[in-house]
Structure formats: C-alpha cells, structure tokens
Design a protein around this nucleic acid. Sequence first.
DNA 1: AATGAATGAGGATTCATTCAT
DNA 2: TATGAATGAATCCTCATTCAT
Lengths: 227, 227, 227, 227
Amino acid sequence: MPKQTLDKIKPAKREKLLSEAAKLFAERGYNQTDMAELASRAGVAKGSLYNYFESKQELYLYVARDGLRRSRQAVYGELDPEWDIFAQLEHIFRQGAAFARRHPEYLIIYLNVSSAGMDPFAAKMSREVEKYTADHLKAVLARDVGRGLVRPDLDIRQAAFWINSLYIIFVASLVSKHFALRMREYLEIKGRLSKAAVEDQLQRTVELIRRFLAPVEGAAPPVQERN
Amino acid sequence: MPKQTLDKIKPAKREKLLSEAAKLFAERGYNQTDMAELASRAGVAKGSLYNYFESKQELYLYVARDGLRRSRQAVYGELDPEWDIFAQLEHIFRQGAAFARRHPEYLIIYLNVSSAGMDPFAAKMSREVEKYTADHLKAVLARDVGRGLVRPDLDIRQAAFWINSLYIIFVASLVSKHFALRMREYLEIKGRLSKAAVEDQLQRTVELIRRFLAPVEGAAPPVQERN
Amino acid sequence: MPKQTLDKIKPAKREKLLSEAAKLFAERGYNQTDMAELASRAGVAKGSLYNYFESKQELYLYVARDGLRRSRQAVYGELDPEWDIFAQLEHIFRQGAAFARRHPEYLIIYLNVSSAGMDPFAAKMSREVEKYTADHLKAVLARDVGRGLVRPDLDIRQAAFWINSLYIIFVASLVSKHFALRMREYLEIKGRLSKAAVEDQLQRTVELIRRFLAPVEGAAPPVQERN
Amino acid sequence: MPKQTLDKIKPAKREKLLSEAAKLFAERGYNQTDMAELASRAGVAKGSLYNYFESKQELYLYVARDGLRRSRQAVYGELDPEWDIFAQLEHIFRQGAAFARRHPEYLIIYLNVSSAGMDPFAAKMSREVEKYTADHLKAVLARDVGRGLVRPDLDIRQAAFWINSLYIIFVASLVSKHFALRMREYLEIKGRLSKAAVEDQLQRTVELIRRFLAPVEGAAPPVQERN
DNA sequence: AATGAATGAGGATTCATTCAT
DNA sequence: TATGAATGAATCCTCATTCAT
C-alpha cells in the first residue's frame, strides 16, 4: 500500500519514521495525530510523508499492519510448534507481556481498531488481525485433544475464543490506562502494576486456562519441557 | 457538570438531545463528532448546546456517564440481590445483550474510554465505571462461597476479574464491528450474528463460568429458580 | 435615546445598572463587553437590558454621555464662574483628579472614544464632549484678558487648546495603564503613583499654565481667594 | 515573535501583509479585525497567517512594534543630534506630521495601546514605546541647558513630559477622528484640516515650547541653521 | 415589565494535502 | 527526491439579539 518510494529511503530513516508514527498514533489516537508533528518527530519533511504514503489513512494502516507483524513475530517467532498447548500459551502470554512493555504503542493501536469512528480500519484489518491467532489456537487445541492433553469434549472454537479473550484483556491491562486501572480495581492492587504483579497475573491466567482445558478426571498435565 | 439550563428544558427535548449525542459520539467517535451536526440532528441550535454544557468535552462526559447509568439500570435494575451468583450472571449477560441491542451507542462509548487519546476521559471515568461491578461481583461471590454454591478455594478477586473480562468481550462483540468480526472468525459463524447465535453464545459463556465456579467434587449446582 | 422603560424602574436599580455598565465597558472595552455578563453583574435579566435600550450601542452611548455629565458635574458643579482663570484651572485639575480616583471608568470611556473602530461613537459624541469645555475656557480667558489678569497678546483659542490638552494627558495618566506608565517613565517615579505625587504634578502643571498666561512684565498674578 | 516562516517569504508579500494588517487594525481596532478579511486583503490564505504568526495577538504586537520602528525611523532617522533642542523639536513635529499623513495607521495603533481592554498589549509595549523619546528629550534638554540655550531653572523631566504631551495631542489630532474634531472645535476651524492649517499649528506649538524653554531675560534664541 | 432559553451569524484556529522550488 | 510554504475546508465556541412565558 505505501508508495515505492518508501523502499528507497535509508532503512534507519524508515525505521525512525514508522516507529515515531506508531508512538504518536498510540499516544494521540488517529484523528488527533498531526502529520506535521509526526514529520517533525520523525525528522523528515511533511511533504515527504506524502512521497511515501498516499494519505494519513494509508500511513496508519501500514503502521498498524507493521505493528501486527512485529507483535506476531515477537509472540510467535520463537514458539516451537511442537510444544503442547500449555507451553505455547505460557510462551504467548509471556512474550505478549514483554512486547507490551517494549512496544505498548503497537498494542494500543491494535486496541484502537475497535474504537468508534475506526470502522473503516476495522473493515480492512480485523480479519487479518484475528485469523492467524484463531487458526493457530484451534489447530494446536485440536492436535492436543488428539494427544490426550486436552479434554476431548472441548468445544475448540469456543475455547480458542475465550482463551484469546483473556489474552486481549491481559495485554490491554498492560498498555491502556483504563484497563490498567480496571485491573488494579478488581485485583485490589495499590499503586503501579509491578513487573512481579504482571508475572503473577500471567501465571494465574495460564493456570486458569490449563485447568479449563485439562482432561477432567486427572490433574492438569505436567508442564512440557521446552528447549 | 452540565449547566442548570439543561434541567429547565422540556424532558422530550433533553432526551432527544442526549440520545442523538450518544448515537453520534458512538458512530463517529469523540473527535469526529461535529457539534453543528449534533445540534442539527437533535433539532436544536448550535448555540443551545452551549447553554446546556460548557463544552463538547463536558457534553461527552455527561453522555458517557448517562450511558453508564442507563446501562447499570438496565443490567442491575431488576436483579434480585438474593439470587445466587449463577442466576445473577445469566441475568447480567442477558440484560447486557438486550441493552446492547437497544442501545449499542452507550456500550460503544464505554469501550471508547480506553481508546488512544481518550486518557483525559479515562482519568475521570474509569474508576466509577468499574468499581460498582467489581464490588458487586466480589460480594456475591463471597456470599455464595459461604453458602456452599461456589468452591471455597476460589480467588474471588481473580474470578471477578475474569468473569467481567468475558462479559466485556461478550458485549463488545455485539456492538463493535471489529469484535463482532473477531467473534465470527473464532466461532466460524457466517453472515450477521443472529439473535439465536447470541443467545447460544451467552449460554455457553455462562455455562463456562458456572463450571469454573462450581465446587469440584459435585456437578455444577442446579440453576436456582427465580420468580 | 434609551427607551421610556428605563425611567420606570427603581432608581437604585438604574444606578446599579449604569454604574456596572460603565465599569465593565471601561474594564473590557466596548467590543469585549458581554451583555450577558453585564446583566449578571447588574443583577438584571439579559432581556431586560433590551427593554431599557435598543441595543448595546445605545447603551454604550448612554453610559458614555452619562459619564460625561457626571464628570462635568464633578468638575464644574462647584466652580464659581467669578473666580479668575487660575483659580478655576486649579479647581478643574483638582476636581478632575478626584473624579478620576472615584470614577476612573468614565474617564476611560471618554478616552476610548478616540480608539480605532470607535468612529461611529466619535461621530456622535465628540463635539458635545468638547464644546462645553472649549467654550468655557475661551470665555474665561477672554474675560480675564479684559481684567488684565492674562496677557493681552494671547491667542485664546490656542491657549484653550493647549491647556485642555495638558488636562487630558493629566487625567489620562491617572486612569490609563499606558499613560500612567508613560508619566512614571518621564518623571522617573518608581512604583505606583502616590496621591502626593499626583497633587505635586497637578500643582506643577497649573503653575506652568499660570506662567504661560500671566502678563509678561509682572510676576504671575496672586492666587485668587475662594471660600 | 513571529515564526521563521515570515522571514522566508518574498519581501513584497511580507510588506503587503504587514501594511494591510496595520491599516485594518487601525481602521477596525483589534477585536473587530477579522483574520479572514485580513488574509483576503493581503492576498494570502487565511492559514498562511498562522504560518507567519502564532496568533492574532502576536501579529498585532508585531505590527504595532513595526509601526513604532517605522515611526521612530521617520521622525528621528534624519535628525542630527548636534542640532539644538529647538531645531530638533521642529524637525520632530514636522516629521511626525508627515508620517501621520503617510501612515496614519501606525499612529492610530499607537494611540490604541491605551484603550480599554488593551492592557495586555500595554503591559508589553508601553515602556519600549515611551522610553526612547523620554530619554532623548531629556538628554538634549540637559545638554542645551549646559549650552545656555535653555533656561537653567528648568525641571527637565517635567519639560520633557509636557513637550511630549503636546506632541501626542498634535499627532493624535491628525489621525483620530475624535481628536481632529476636537482640534477644529477649539481652533474654530471649519471643514477638513488643511495642510496649511497643520503647518500653522505645528509652528505655533513649537513656538510655544520655544518660549517656555528660552532663558527668561532675553528673547527666544534664534533658530539654529541646519544644513 | 421581567425573564432567560433559543438562535445562528461570525470568527479564531487547525490541519491534511498540494505543489513550486 | 526532499522540502516546507500555501491552501481553505472544517470546527469549536461566542454573543448580540429575539421572543415565548
């Protein structure tokens, strides 16, 4: 979608631009982001933005997709497909949390696709955002039902939906002022969310899911070793 | 927060104004909503808006809080505090779904408080939005632990957090284009979300929660009869 | 120019209205004065202002003329026409200074008639503002030339013009931020203008004029006694 | 205070803009001047004004200061500091009158700084406006007392104050509708102020001052020859 | 006569996008 | 290709005045 020109500029410059754009869009929201300020922060001329992208909307879309790609890389990049679902989920949550700490901007942008007035973006992005994760979760769940690690009566689609829902709320709580406050309210945490509190919450959530997935008669299956 | 003048105008006019404001804010988002268009849709003069509210921001805040009140009334208004947690949750989810159908605008506005650039609003509203539900859920859970309806080893704060998280995702899926698409993707639903599909999803989610809360040894407790 | 209704309201209310109007016009200037705020300060309804006056412009004109009348009363009201020009001038300057202290608003409004954008008012008021003083000064000067108190070669019109010019600058220095600062700059006065400094300046100015008017050969004529 | 952009546009365009701005501000006053109309008169887009200046207020301030500089240049630019005070005063009054004829707008703007509601501007400009002239007048007077051209008992600060007061009233009478009318009223001039009448008034005023400054025993000193 | 809600023209400022250099 | 000045539609808010009660 961006113009060819974008590929011709120095990678460092391109990185800087995309990174500043993501931060600014996350900070201000789409409408409140000023192309002039963006250009200035990125150290390029305002007009140059229009050499690289057709419009603000294209730029936003590109940044959002770029963020999605980075997020996916961060979360799934080092995930071994052979791990069982429990190992994968713990990995996913932990990498998600780490990514949220490093690049809250991309998660904020993701969360924003569901905002009022962002329907044009939702129409273009939602499916591609969700499909990968949905397919992955379902495939692993199905496989691990087959392996006897997950209870056989599980409704896989529902399970994937619920698990991902908890993941969304979890990462949202790490990057959104509102969701962070909500989490602290529910969990009665005073002050800022510490790294330890996040790790604790992560483990509790994964444990919750483990319990939900595990075959009923026995205890939860042992955590599979990875690397 | 609104000016006194707002109380002095005819109720029908006030209703119309607040209702159109909610719809427009939900449709366009805060920044893209034009006060002139709002006035025109509400059938009042632009200047009149400023007789009722100090600013666009005050108006938005009032509409958001008004929506919260309506939503709470719709969801909790006819809830009998004596019902057990399972009956209450089913009621809450069902009333939430009905309210989402009747007034998606208020839920959309609620979801928007967590959007980028809405921090000023989040700072003012988040706590009051979440506290009521958090306190209520925790109280009922604690009571029903005491009654033996809920397993005693339950971490009540965590449970309340997770239950409400599922509720948020559930209603979001009914009002947001993005979340609706996401739900259809996960659940492999073709076309629009039918009322029946929503009811089905509602029951599955409540059942999931019931299972999670129920004392382990026995089956899930029977659904409590209400009137 | 005001409507008849103005005469029918209680004098105290009318006084309050005119007084608040003068203060507000002086404080903010004509354009920046808000009829709503004026009404509120005066303790009347906004609509009532339009029962008393056709428009903001009429109101302003009335207040300005009213101020002129008060100022003239304060300055000339107790002046004995039989006093010589020197006694009269000292009286005028002193009463002018006292009036400036009591009612700076009216002098400020007078000074404003010469502001940019106030030509419509200048067209209506300037002559009536200036004619009285001009005629009076010239008459007394002419009389006192006849009495041998003022040098016979005096150009009476010029003298009246210059004397009044000094008077204008003198009172402007008492009520206008700019002219006060200018006076302090020229006279090298630190801090606020004290009452004593004003009296000193008054006497110096009157003495200057006395010297200018006095017949050349002799000393300045003795100050005429008045009750 | 203006933005850098102002320096980067073509001088003719900048001149046109500043000149139209001065005229419009002088014609309408600050508040009544519409940025859109200004842009249109200056032949630039409305938005461009905001590329040059942060705000209307900054623009006004710049125009006012620019006018002050031009006025000072016109009046003092060709003044030889070696001239005696009488030659200098005649030069100042004459150049002032000429400048008032060429650029009444700048003098009108100066007079406006003392208007009601212009205190924010007065606070920023008054001292810089008055200090130069005050210092200059006092210095020349002191020097010429030393040279025996001015009577030694003169209170120099007072004299400077009075002389400048007469100058202000003189130029105000050339540019302000109100002061022009006042002058015609005092001097009983019918119709417009002719150039000859202005020159006559100028000479009379300077003669008045000469008489006031001259050492008492002798006649006024002869007019000093310059080039 | 008094009130204050209603009106809408007006006006400062913003900002995505264009385009000449 | 890079730049940033130019543009003008868009938008929040003000306020003199009207008019129904």
